[in-house]
Simulated scan of single mutants.
Amino acid sequence: MATPAFEEIVEDFEFLEDWEDRYRHVIEQGKAMPPLDDALKVPATKVDGCASQVWLHPIIEDGVFRFDGDSDAMIVRGLVAVLRKLYSGLPLAEVLKVDARAEMARLGLNDHLSAQRSNGVRSMIERIRKVAAEHV
Rank of each mutant, 00 (worst) to 15 (best):
M1F: 06
A2C: 03
T3S: 07
I9Y: 01
I9L: 12
I9H: 05
V10C: 04
V10L: 07
D12Q: 14
F13D: 06
E17L: 14
D18E: 14
E20V: 12
E20Q: 15
D21W: 01
R22K: 15
I27L: 10
E28C: 00
E28L: 11
A32G: 01
A32D: 04
M33T: 03
P35G: 08
D38S: 12
K41M: 14
P43C: 12
P43S: 09
K46F: 12
D48K: 15
D48L: 14
A51M: 15
A51E: 13
S52C: 11
Q53R: 11
V54F: 06
L56V: 11
I59K: 15
I60S: 07
F65L: 10
F67P: 05
D68V: 01
D70P: 07
M74G: 08
V76P: 02
R77K: 15
L79S: 05
L83N: 04
Y87G: 05
G89S: 05
P91H: 12
E94H: 11
D99E: 13
D99H: 02
R101V: 05
A102I: 04
R106D: 02
G108S: 07
G108I: 09
L109S: 09
L109R: 08
A115E: 13
R117F: 05
I125P: 00
I128Y: 04
R129F: 00
A133E: 14
H135C: 00
V136L: 13
